[in-house]
Write a protein that binds this DNA or RNA. Sequence first.
DNA 1: CCGACAACCTGTGAGC
DNA 2: TGCTCACAGGTTGTCG
Length: 275
Amino acid sequence: MPELPEVEVCRQGLAPAVVGRRVRQLTVRFPMLRAPIPPDLPERLRDVEVVAIERRGKYLLFDCRRPTERGWLIIHLGMSGSLRLLATATPPTLHDHVDIDLGGLLLRYRDPRRFGVIAWQEGAEAARHPLLCGLGTEPLGQEFCGDWLYRATRARRSPIKTLLMDAGFLVGVGNIYAAESLFLSGISPLRPAGRLGRAACDRLAAAVRNTLIAAIAAGGSSIRDYVHHDGGRGDFQLDYAVYGRTGEVCRRCAGIVRCIRQGGRSTFYCPGCQR
DNA sequence: CCGACAACCTGTGAGC
DNA sequence: TGCTCACAGGTTGTCG
């Protein structure tokens, strides 16, 4: 999936075309995603105006208004989800589970693996939704910095890479950007988080932020089947230092990039550069 | 609290 | 060519 940069690129791509439009109809062809799409979602969305698209971690939040009501359409792209803007009459193909008819424009949700989520939160605060209320710090927000990371990790004994990917701790950082950020900051993914010094936390926080910002600027990654709102692909993958480079030569020290398993996920790192 | 692991599901690429 | 297997961006729940 989409990690934070891909979701943010999606948000930025959709907003100009979608904000200000009214939902004519929601068509659900297949409701069984990670959680079932609420059966009443079509009626909740009918005739709402989308006034903004926000993001919390990897969740897209569509701010939906009626004259006297407000609510949020919540979309998570899972591992393989995508949202595209298409001409209204575009025929659906396999795995095109949901269409949002915006009147002269079609917003289509496609998700082959169906790990995504489409949900609804009534009221003014999307954050009250159970999927969102336990989420951790935003890595591109004000709070996130070396000082925060240092303080937040003191009591943590889990490997720093596992913690970076824990959405209850820090949102938006997935397998690719965790690996890249740790490489950039010269920190081993195996290091217990609570053993990181203040300087290491400064370097890591900066690396996380810079990696995410660079990926957003590059238009997101384009692993496998990931596509943008317009069907285009990102090119951040050209810049991967360690992700997916098992056995290849490290670009910094001429050592060999290794792949290990952590928490059921592949971790790529350079044992020479990362301590 | 922690971590390891399985589960959810389909597609793809490698190896035989 | 065709089969089987491992693995892929995420999240959640269970078990020790």
